[in-house]
Design a protein around this nucleic acid. Sequence first.
DNA 1: GAGTTTAGTTAGCTTGGCTAAGTAATCAGG
DNA 2: CCTGATTACTTAGCCAAGCTAACTAAACTC
Lengths: 157, 157
Amino acid sequence: MTSQAGARARPAQAADVATRLHSAAIHLLRRLRIEDQASGLSGPRLSALSVVVFGGVTTLGDLARAEQVRPPTMSRLVAGLVHAGLMEAVRDPDDRRVQRIRATAKGRSLLEAGRARRVRRLTRDLERLAAGEFTAVAGALDVIERIARANPNHTTP
Amino acid sequence: MTSQAGARARPAQAADVATRLHSAAIHLLRRLRIEDQASGLSGPRLSALSVVVFGGVTTLGDLARAEQVRPPTMSRLVAGLVHAGLMEAVRDPDDRRVQRIRATAKGRSLLEAGRARRVRRLTRDLERLAAGEFTAVAGALDVIERIARANPNHTTP
DNA sequence: GAGTTTAGTTAGCTTGGCTAAGTAATCAGG
DNA sequence: CCTGATTACTTAGCCAAGCTAACTAAACTC
């Protein structure tokens, strides 16, 4: 029994790796979330703002889908963020049903500061690793990123 | 310029890896969260139940801390879960201020089913990887798990 | 141009978050 | 042991965040 993944051993190993990766992601984000208290924003607002700043989302409906929330909920979240001066929402002149949404400079800098706090904490942890450990994490990142951003709607062919 | 991490290059690389790992974790869980709709439970209830089932948490206060929520909030979440027959809360006979909390069989099986759905989706993604890619992820897991579960309250010595 | 679809909003409800203040049990001195 | 402090949780009452149902308005269809 070697550590090489043979065709037979693969499915069980995949389930095991999936279980561990899932759990690790939960614990990692739970831990980093502590830093968000400093932002003064609620979780849902911070998350919506983050999608607008980093994800390049432009309309209210897109934002609702991205956040897995219904349009009325997002409508109010956006209203709150606009009121707080962190976002702007403008009617699209080409399709006046649509709300074009973007972050203000204030919103962007507030969000960047928050993300910097999270990343800083994680960076400190990574800096403590042995060289081999660090390389292992860095080497897995391309693949983890691909899985993380995979299209959720694919059907098995 | 090699891919080996030298003592000089390390800090910048660590920040880069932290940024990417953070973002990947967010996207991964956002994607897997879609599966939770099938459970019929709200996010906060599912999360609290999960901590009780997997984390071995025993008291209401511990649970509130684990979920980064105030005691009154957890009080109501637990009340709802008890009412739904997914948890039991009993006064500790040795210290009658505390609520000993545990999942019922129904709660445990509901949660296991939900986690199975999430893990199944992730497993399918992992099974599609090339052998080398899979090994890279599996090899990084020990380290990622250690970072994910690190004590959040450590002070730099 | 009448009907349909799409994008958001409004109304009104439940749940989930908080603080402030209360109750009850335990602990620590004197 | 009794008095005061601390701890664990609950109650009350507020606002934010989730939902569905029903509405408005714009854009498509033909």
